[in-house]
């Protein structure tokens, strides 16, 4: 009897799962496996069918300077956006958590970029950066700084894109810190002040450690975003000038949908997936250690 009810329950469960699972397999699992397989084949062109080419695509990749540049750009981009946006988010949260005048308005100002589409953000900043009459040039010009084409020169283009990402992301991360700060018991602050700890000590020794889980969560999100968002690249620079702002996913998009070389794009995607897997693994290992530590 119980055996039958168990089997019935299992049947029900799988029926409930079926629609979601089918779509997940079709649009996540299978494409991931398919990407891996395709990276060992050539791109079918016209009447030429795709054939097994072993590691050819990967050899092409190793010899491809644009791939290496996109990868290094992406690492610099991650390194430039993540620490600054997290630090700013924390600062914003601490400020907005205090009883400053008009803090609702301030909080709104910080959070607003989050609800805008990345492409709208990119358009707004494109205008902001415009040579000669953009706001940035006007302000800097007033201070006597010589004219400079910020997005048009390879030295500054990536930094400009990094600023845009920080602007868009910091307010989003702020709300997680704000929520975590509000959950810290006021008793801790009272105890710390009885001990005569300075505000900085209280922040460094009490608040910051208690915010660690939030920092980890935000960090993982920031890393993933650094590798999966290229909307602003497409709008602002198209990877230029001279590939100075080409990120990995943007390069995949170019190879796959401008040059229509799907096999090479698959090999590049494998690298991106490996990077994301490393992030997930790192998060897992870090969490494990933290649990043991406790």
């Amino acid at each position: 009897m119980t055996g039958r009810t168990n089997r019935l329950e299992a049947l029900h469960a799988w029926l409930l799962l079926l629609p979601a699972m089918a779509l997940l397999v079709l649009f996540t699992h299978w494409p991931a496996v398919g990407t891996f397989i395709d990276s060992f084949y050539s791109t079918p062109r016209g009447r030429r069918r795709s054939i097994f080419v072993g590691l050819d695509n990967y050899q092409q990749m190793v010899a491809d300077p644009i791939f290496w540049q996109s990868l290094t750009n992406n690492l610099w981009y991650a390194l430039g956006t993540i620490p600054v946006s997290i630090a700013l988010a924390l600062l914003m949260a601490v400020w907005v958590n205090d009883r400053i005048a008009g803090r609702a308005l301030v909080r709104m100002a910080y959070f607003t970029p989050t609800v805008l589409p990345m492409i709208a953000v990119a358009n707004i900043w494109l205008f902001f950066y415009t040579p000669q009459y953009g706001l940035l040039e006007q302000v800097l010009g007033a201070f006597g700084v010589p004219a400079h084409n910020w997005l048009g020169s390879p030295d500054t283009a990536l930094a400009c894109v990094i600023v845009v990402t920080i602007w868009k992301e910091a307010g989003f991360f702020m709300i997680f810190y704000l929520a975590a700060l509000q959950q810290i018991s006021p008793v801790l602050a009272e105890a710390a002040s009885l001990e005569g700890a300075s505000r900085w000590t209280y922040f460094r020794r009490v608040q910051f450690p208690l915010l660690m889980p939030t920092t980890l969560f935000v960090l993982v999100n920031a890393v993933i975003n650094a590798f999966r968002t290229v909307d602003h690249i497409i709008v602002m620079t198209r990877g230029g000038p001279d590939n100075a702002t080409s990120l990995l996913l943007f390069y995949i998009y170019e190879v796959g949908f401008k040059f229509w070389d799907s096999a090479y794009a698959a090999a590049l995607t494998v690298v991106l997936l490996a990077l994301l897997a490393a992030v997930a693994l790192g998060q897992y290992v870090f969490l494990e250690r933290r649990v043991h530590y406790r």
Partner: peptide
């Protein structure tokens, strides 16, 4: 298998999904 999608997002699998 479901959680795997948190890491391998559809945003990345553009070539195959196309």
């Amino acid at each position: 298998l479901v959680l795997l999608q948190l890491m391998i997002m559809p945003d990345v699998l553009i070539v195959e999904n196309y």
